[in-house]
């Protein structure tokens, strides 16, 4: 345990979380106009069809996997009757598929952004940072899944990384758990915190706007000209 470990596994996560929460509050209150997916489908559609669908479905599946693997503790999965073997099976096979799909999508999206001048011109510095971090985080993540767990020696991150992660939220950080994790896991976690810190200031805010209310809504909306005066 060095100062360096404390910084990476305590200070960085909390700093990122503060930025994440405060950044979203600030952005939501002050920049509704900038809150959008910044779609570029108008400028290019064919590559996007593959890139966007693969990336998003892959990413959402991977996120679901993280919830299962990191947020849900061991005892809970065993309590509902999922054995260690079954868990490993679930995380290795569908996890690998999700990862590969997501990476394929991301590669298409990045190539598209670089190759089509129309799209490239809409890319700003924050976009570049987002793509870089996404590529690092996702690349390391698929590395863990494929090289370590599916085909490699395996690593029981659920009794180290996961506990450290949950501990952060109990305000009971245990950096020593991370200090002993393999390097890919360390890099994956650290770069993910960087991504979270950037999140509220990037186009990634669109993720929170998944318009599920649409499902139960009447089709035609009216609004009074005086709606604003009502409050």
């Amino acid at each position: 345990m060095t100062i360096w470990d404390t910084f990476l596994w305590v200070v960085l996560p909390y700093a990122a979380l503060v930025l994440f929460v405060a950044g979203h509050v600030w952005r939501y209150r002050h920049d509704q106009f900038g809150w959008t997916s910044r779609s570029t489908q108008l400028l290019e559609g064919r590559w996007l069809a593959w890139g966007s669908n693969l990336f998003h479905y892959g990413a959402l599946a991977a996120i679901a996997g993280h919830v299962l693997g990191i947020l849900v503790p061991n005892w809970l999965t065993s309590a509902v009757g999922i054995s260690e073997f079954t868990y490993h099976f679930i995380s290795a096979i569908p996890g690998s598929i999700a990862g590969v799909v997501c990476v394929a999508g991301l590669v298409i999206l990045i190539v598209r952004r670089a190759a089509f001048v129309r799209v490239r011109r809409t890319t700003d510095a924050v976009d570049v940072a987002v793509y870089t971090l996404l590529a690092i985080v996702i690349g390391l993540g698929i590395g863990e899944t494929l090289a370590v767990n599916a085909f490699g020696p395996g690593y029981d991150y659920r009794s180290t990384v996961a506990i450290w992660f949950r501990g952060l939220f109990w305000l009971h950080p245990e950096p020593q758990l991370m200090a002993g994790a393999p390097l890919v896991y360390q890099l994956h976690a650290a770069s993910a915190w960087a991504l979270y810190a950037l999140w509220p200031f990037s186009r990634l805010v669109h993720v929170w706007s998944l318009p599920w209310q649409y499902l139960g809504r009447p089709y035609i909306l009216y609004r009074s000209r005086y709606a604003a005066a009502r409050r």
Binding site: Q32, F33, W35, T36, S37, R38, S39, Q41, L42, H206, S209, P211, Q213, Y214, R217, I220, L221, Y222, R223, S224, R225
Partner: peptide
């Protein structure tokens, strides 16, 4: 997103620029 609406008073159809999330 429910960002487009028809105005009750005069029927004009408008996009609320603050509520639009660009789902196109």
């Amino acid at each position: 997103s429910g960002a487009i609406y028809k105005r009750e008073e005069d029927g004009i159809v408008l996009v609320d620029q603050d509520k639009c999330r660009g789902w196109r």
